[in-house]
Write a protein that binds this DNA or RNA. Structure first.
Lengths: 332, 332
DNA sequence: GGCGGGTCCGGTAACGTTTGCATAAAATTT
DNA sequence: AAATTTTATGCAAACGTTACCGGACCCGCC
């Protein structure tokens, strides 16, 4: 059965539309008998209020939007699961979009979500740009936004992130303690917040242990898979690193693959560590140690802040930045 | 700037709402000068028609919905990318939901999408049930639905699937040719279409090569990760298979992991093949051969059928079932 | 000069819902 | 019995948009 409306009920029961509406909502000023008749008939006919009509009237939709660069990335799909967990619990469906690391897609997605009046937005920024003017505009109109993982620089925003500095620091220090001296760092575009923080952690660990920071050992890679391969290749040929620290989820895999191909037959003892939530890291060969982000918690926390913001439960509290710890998994 | 409406334009230009509407839509019965004024002003004010009002009026939303069990599954995220590719091209945003293999979530998702008037639905069924009565109801109301991958039995539906029989047949035959005699098959719940078809391919290959079909070598697993481990464990202890053929994407990984743990120290030469789109199969140790589904093509094709259906471009054509070939990747 | 036709525009209803206001009937008070 | 309050209901507007219908105005034609 498609949609039975409040009008149909009114007609069937020979009462007015407004009476039906009130019977279904308040009990304000409504006869108990009438109310019962309406509620029972509505139940019987399987009446559902039309959310589109509601949205038009109230200018909101009781749903939230999520934009991530790629769902085919373990970190993001885990974060989405955390978001959904909280949102469903609190009665908000979650609408998922992908930006595919493209600014234009990000803009289109946001506009689409906003025009359809989602009550708020959770977003991890696309890596292809640094500009967030397209988001500033919404913020000025009090559209609730919470950033997670890849966040903007501005202080005027809610952010939920992993402790990228600490994660990178731990990973690098681990390599140093293992005796590594020429630790290469392959990382995402320098525009991203995560890139900068992880870079800082990497450098800080080197400095703490008296190792030089050598720019030749650092490579920034964009989103073409070949870039990782090229970086690995050129590093192996020119710098002969004894360890690789890969700074992002996707890069960890691309680099791992390139390394495995390149390193065939080389006897050198090279250790790999990736900043990644890849679920199969422990099954790879050679073993891939990882810095794991609390993706689900990040998603949960971001959703909580957003929903509190939407439901006005944060009165007075200003913008918040939540930093969650990472975990270093050493393999083997 | 938030939303400027057609009313605002009418007021500013001192003309009526209906004139503005016509100027923006048709050119029917509208003065060229007026039209120009309106269009220019609308442009300047960055006017966007309110899609919610449109949806209410036209009872559709110019968007489509997708429901998959889990986005954190390479096959599904690839399929979604195929869907998005076609849908975006044709101007339809894609709303993604996850059922998490739960019937209740599937029902809630469908209802939500339907109530929000998506123009059609692409769905891969949750594995926890065989019942599709909750979908039948929509079909009777001419709500366009295209099933992909996990499809219902009914003939009255559009379906896009991989050639599961052929894929399983090829995988099994490959193992047989390699000299394997006790090939275990670990697969998803028997309710699923994919399970049945892959099972048939497995058995058919055995029969073709004169090997017995031994039910003791077959294990059905649900969606708890432990189930795969238990199956592997008990098989290794009692049946001593010389090969494992894993029948689903998720199981391939769970089994691989369990096998790796169990097989430690065992010298036996056991070969693994998985029906999976796992992107890291070639990086695992031991190597995991795979039957790969054309996930992106499946998504594309499903989206094409759905959009053609929505846009009435299939006049006369009845229900369609598209079967796409699989690829066997042998490693090493 | 009346009339048919064309051009251009405005009013209005409709989509489904909520809500403030008016109003009728009933119940209570005086 | 009249006045007042309470109770229960209906009407209408509003959200943003489109589409049907009707009307004003101008043109040319017999």
């Amino acid at each position: 059965m498609s949609s039975v409306t409040i009008k149909d009920i009114a007609r069937a029961l020979n009462i007015s539309v407004s009476t039906v509406s009130r019977a279904l909502r308040d009990s304000y000023d409504i006869n108990a008998g009438t109310k019962k008749r309406v509620v029972e008939y509505a139940e019987k006919m399987n009446y559902r209020p039309n959310p589109i009509a509601l949205s038009l009237k109230e200018n909101k939709s009781r749903s939230i939007g999520v934009i991530v660069p790629e769902i085919a990335n373990t970190f993001f799909s885990q974060a989405i699961n955390g978001i959904e967990e909280i949102a469903c619990e609190r009665g908000y469906p979650v609408v998922i979009f992908q930006s595919h690391e493209l600014l234009e897609r990000e803009i289109a997605n946001i506009r689409h979500l906003f025009e359809r009046r989602v009550d708020g937005l959770l977003i991890s920024l696309s890596g292809s740009h640094k500009d967030i003017s397209h988001l500033e505009e919404y913020r000025r109109n009090n559209f609730p936004i919470v950033y997670f993982d890849r966040v903007p620089e501005t202080a005027e925003a809610h952010k939920v992130v992993a402790d990228n500095f600490e994660g990178a620091f731990k990973a690098t220090e681990h390599l140093i303690i293992r005796g590594k001296k020429r630790i290469a760092h392959i990382t995402s575009p320098p525009t991203l917040s995560i890139t900068q923080e992880r870079m800082a952690g990497y450098k800080s660990a080197l400095q703490k242990h008296g190792l030089p920071v050598r720019e030749e050992l650092i490579r920034y890679c964009g989103f073409r898979p070949e870039e990782a391969a090229e970086a690995i290749c050129s590093l192996l040929e020119t710098e002969r690193p004894d360890a690789f620290f890969m700074g992002s989820d996707r890069l960890a895999l691309d680099c791992f693959e390139a390394y495995k191909k390149q390193a065939q037959g080389r006897p050198e003892d090279i250790t790999l560590v990736g900043f990644t939530n890849l679920s199969v890291a422990h099954l790879l060969e050679p073993p891939l140690s990882t810095v794991v982000q609390p993706a689900i918690s990040i998603g949960r926390k971001a959703a909580e802040i957003l929903l509190d913001e939407i439901e006005n439960k944060r009165r007075g509290k200003g913008f918040e930045t939540v930093v969650l710890g990472t975990e270093l998994n050493i393999r083997p």
